[in-house]
Amino acid sequence: MLGAAVAATAVVAVLGSTGAVDLDPVRGAAATALGPLERALGPGEDALSRARAEQARLTARLAAAQREAATGQQLGALLADPALAGARLVTGRVVAVGSSGPSGPERVTIDVGSRDGVEPDRTVVATGGLVGRVVSVTAWTADVLVVGSPDLVVGVRVGAAGVLGEAAAAPAPGAPRPQPGLLSLSLVERGSMTRGDAVTTLGSVGGRPFVPGIRVGTVRSADSTSGRLAPVGTLAPAVETTTLDVVAVVLGEERTGPRPIVTGTG
């Protein structure tokens, strides 16, 4: 009898620690049976506990007010971005951050999902510019692959001339490895870029995964003597992914009809 009980305990401990079996129903049943007894034996309400409860309520209200003010401020700055003028956006907050890569978080979870109209391969932006793209969606949350993740390569335009290139965490062949926090930038054809040039998204078909014209960052260094045909360099991202809070998902609008035919006037 005792041996069986010890064996059962060992099995439960192993299964519980490995997460192979969900033991929450057992905990729930125990809480249902023992909870009322604990409540009866627990400390009663007195002046001190009432004061503490009031303090906790006020602290929570203050935190909520501060959060609302900060959200409003960030949201205002985000919506004022000229690159997003006229875009259909759904705003959300970062609620979970995945494992960090060499240059910060690689995936984050935001609190908007398919019920808010979010779909995979949508552009995610924050105040300042591009955050990343939606990779998976549940009813109320969405996972975002952020700029700086090794799995994310962004087609970009560099500088006022709009030279085509690509930005990625991994260096292009022949290019030096970017420092932590920076992205590798390589132009796809002969062109030039200089430090300080703005880098924006090139855009994709149907605006998925990236809508055009979103600020990705700024050229930090440019090197045209690396032995490659096209110059390479590094890029400082426009958005600090380690402090992400309020973000917006660009919903975009699918094109349903052909583009109009136009006549040259030359």
């Binding site: 305990t9 519980g16 905990r27 125990a30 809480a31 023992l34 604990e38």
Partner: peptide, 14 residues
């Protein structure tokens, strides 16, 4: 099992 309970059930029993 008594709330709040243990993180891993069974270890305290052992």
């Amino acid at each position: 099992l008594a709330p709040p309970g243990a993180t891993i059930l069974g270890l305290t029993a052992f």
